[in-house]
Design a protein around this nucleic acid. Structure first.
Lengths: 119, 119
DNA sequence: TCGTGGTTACCAAAAAGTGCGTAATTTACT
DNA sequence: AGTAAATTACGCACTTTTTGGTAACCACGA
């Protein structure tokens, strides 16, 4: 982790959760133990490199646990930590908030469409 | 808004809230009506371009309201919408979660320091 | 030779910073 | 009186920085 030093805890969480992947990965991991290749199958559009990077980030943030097993080919399993599990409902709440405010956004869009029209 | 078309509401919220500024701006706007220059003073490190861009994004997302007043120099006021206000406690919860999991991260850091040490 | 979980180097694309221009009115200076 | 400068909230073009993708390499065993 680089410099996760900011005064505000919110800045710090957002530093971890920002981007396409963190919440998605948390979502797939919520289903249970996953391996690297499982997660790639779950989300085919993430690159090999990004998956490794994002998993590290989540691990450093204490959201994901990594378990390495001896043997070849090497087997590695990923799981949410207890903190990670506690985070899930909070992310859910954001999703629900977004869904609930859908109608408000629809109105906004309608208004701007009307404003755009000049025939 | 470009293509905020994804199957999952969580992906969509994160698209709006990702990055340094959205949550910060929401935080300052929570204090009440702010003007462009107020927000720049609140957060001196944001560039005027980014501030304008981010405010638009939040406006399109229905989180922020923009009110333009005639006259020169032009005056513009920004406020949270009702949806925006509803979002605040959810963001707070993330911050609290992060603060609460601080000790867990501290332990992780300790362990990795021990692992790094090879004297 | 393939599969596993990475890391690294290289490159293209996207994000973000800088500085200039703009509007009409007030204030400040000469 | 006449002129210059400042004010506010941006938009635009240009440059720099940061991200993210691709592909190659590694280890070993079946």
């Amino acid at each position: 982790m680089k410099d996760l030093v900011s005064r505000c805890p919110i800045e710090e969480v957002m530093q971890v959760l920002s981007g396409r992947w963190p919440t998605l990965l948390i979502y797939y991991l919520k289903e249970g133990t996953k391996r690297f290749s499982d997660l790639r199958r779950d989300n085919p559009t993430i690159s090999h490199k990004m998956l490794a990077l994002e998993l590290r980030k989540l691990e450093d943030a204490g959201i994901v646990q990594r378990a390495e097993f001896e043997g070849y080919p090497l087997r590695v399993e990923y799981d949410l930590t207890p903190s990670g599990h506690a985070l899930v409902p909070l992310i859910d709440a954001l999703g629900e908030w977004w869904a609930a405010t859908d109608s408000a956004r629809a109105e906004l869009a309608d208004r701007s469409e009307m404003a755009d029209r000049h025939d």
